[in-house]
Amino acid sequence: MEHGRENEEARLIARFRAGDMQAVETLFWRYADSVLAYATRLLGNRTDAEEVLSDVFLRAFEGCMGYRAEGTFKAWLFRIARNCCIDRLRQPRLLRLEDGVEPVQGDDTADIELRVAVQRALKRLPEEYQTVLLLCDVEEFTAKEVAEMLGRSVPSVKGMLYRARTALRDALSEEWGEEA
């Protein structure tokens, strides 16, 4: 990401530290939708994702009060979001509804079928594959940013991304009932 955005966000974080609530609102509304979408895709349901969303921003701002790692605020948030989602997935559940497939809304039948197939195919992949696909191919983070988030090398992320794309292709083929 360009340095202009990083510098602007560094100023917003400084304003937050100085007690400016408006800076918090700006950062929150800038990324709230994309963090909720990411959490929904990883957790497989929106209710859990909405609960996680609050934790993500609280942890992010707590982190901003002290040391904050290098990189963009967005990359920082998504790293926290992934950790929160993993924590949530590890929690024992008294009742788990049909695992992972959220009711899909929409008017266009083809779009709905596509979204259901993608949701089901994603849920069949290992968590790490889902993560790199969502971060690189949907959120368009660079391999370097994702490597920093996951604590891996760039070649390792690129290799995993290729395997994840292949696995997604195969899973979609099976979900779709024909070649993807």
Partner: peptide
Amino acid sequence: AREMLRRGVESPMVSEPLGERILNHI
């Protein structure tokens, strides 16, 4: 498959009441 993923992922939006609740919490 990559194109299908981009078109097929859900993109929910944060409702204003939810956002307000979280901001109040912060």
